[in-house]
């Protein structure tokens, strides 16, 4: 019997269960895109059949990092840029827990960029939501890794000399097996993508456009948006890496021309997740390690049995 009985529990799940009684009202600014992520997430989890007690929502630092203050589940609000290493280890420790990581574009593409690359490369079975508002919000409006070239801010008074990161292309190149972009202003699509991402066995990277009405007034509200799957103007195979790469490049470029393209950009259902790879190599047990500590019959190995080689 599992020591974690919330996992795999079959029951009706109400989306209100994901609203914490202790802090039901987010403190985000009125009109903030983060509300859209929260709402979509609250809808997606019951639809994917996940309960608050079997979900671990791991966040970084920034406005987006507050997500798990306003979302009822197990939560780990970590440090700036480090949500992914904490999250992926929790997944390895107990693969049956639904692990979702989230953070801002500075958090994920800037300070945590190295972790983003390597977590995607390893294809951990988890969802990673990047709140992309093209700005540093909580520290009051500095230029971020996704701010457009020429973006003026208090820390880039003459305008940014840097080209922005191409987040979708970066996710693809690094090795994410599911890459999508959605927008806070399109909660239905966001919810659908989140459900797909949760159900995907591998690293699902969602670049989530979240408008910042306070510090990034110049930026669009990400409307009108175009769903590339629904539009007749775009025809590409999301399972074809090269076509996906071209479409991502076009999408990333278009954003700075005022055209908001969203949808699924790359889906590889065949690639084994990291846990599957490790298990195939015999480097990770079939049963979650976390369960073993509750197994009273388990015979724990002793180093005394390893001493022969030293004698």
């Amino acid at each position: 019997m599992s020591a974690f009985s919330a996992i795999g529990e079959e029951r009706e799940i109400d989306r209100d269960e994901f609203t914490p009684g202790i802090e039901p009202q987010p403190t985000w600014c009125p009109g903030c895109g983060d509300f859209g992520v929260l709402k979509a997430l609250k809808q997606a989890l019951p639809e994917a059949g996940r309960t608050p007690d079997e979900t671990l929502l791991v966040t970084g630092i920034g406005c987006s990092g507050k997500l798990n203050s306003y979302f009822e589940s197990y939560g780990f609000h970590t440090i700036h840029g480090r949500s992914l290493p904490v999250a992926r280890a929790a997944k390895l420790a107990n693969p049956n827990v639904e692990v979702i990581a989230a953070g801002g574009d500075g958090d994920g593409y800037g300070i945590g960029g190295n972790h983003f690359i390597h977590t995607a490369r390893e294809n951990h079975d988890m969802v990673y939501i990047v709140f992309n508002n093209e700005i540093f919000g909580l520290t009051k409006g500095q230029t971020s890794p996704t701010s457009p070239k020429g973006h003026k801010s208090k820390t880039q008074p003459s305008g940014s000399a840097k080209d922005p990161i191409r987040p979708l292309s970066l996710g693809l190149t690094a090795g994410a097996s599911y890459v999508a972009r959605t927008a806070a202003v399109n909660p239905n699509q966001a919810k659908e993508i989140l459900v797909e991402a949760i159900e995907h066995d591998g690293f699902a990277h969602i670049d989530f456009l979240t408008q910042c009405p306070t510090w990034n007034k110049d930026a669009r509200q990400y409307v009108p948006y175009i769903d590339v799957q629904d539009s007749d103007d775009y025809d590409f195979d999301v399972t074809d890496r090269r076509e996906a790469a071209d479409m991502m490049y076009e999408t990333e470029s278009a954003l700075y021309e005022g055209e908001v393209l969203t949808g699924r950009f790359y889906v590889d259902e065949d690639r084994p997740s990291y846990g599957q790879e490790k298990r195939a190599l015999g480097e990770m047990p079939e049963e979650p390690v976390a369960e073993r500590y509750f197994d009273e019959d388990y015979k724990w190995e002793r180093s005394a049995d390893l001493l022969d080689r030293h004698m």
Partner: peptide
């Protein structure tokens, strides 16, 4: 012995992984 070893991208990640695994009960 049914354990997991992870060689990771840097030491920030290494310590953060240990924290994450411990948080989840290993």
């Amino acid at each position: 012995v049914g354990g997991i070893s992870e060689q990771v991208e840097d030491e920030i990640a290494a310590a953060a992984l240990a924290v994450g695994a411990s948080h989840a009960g290993v």
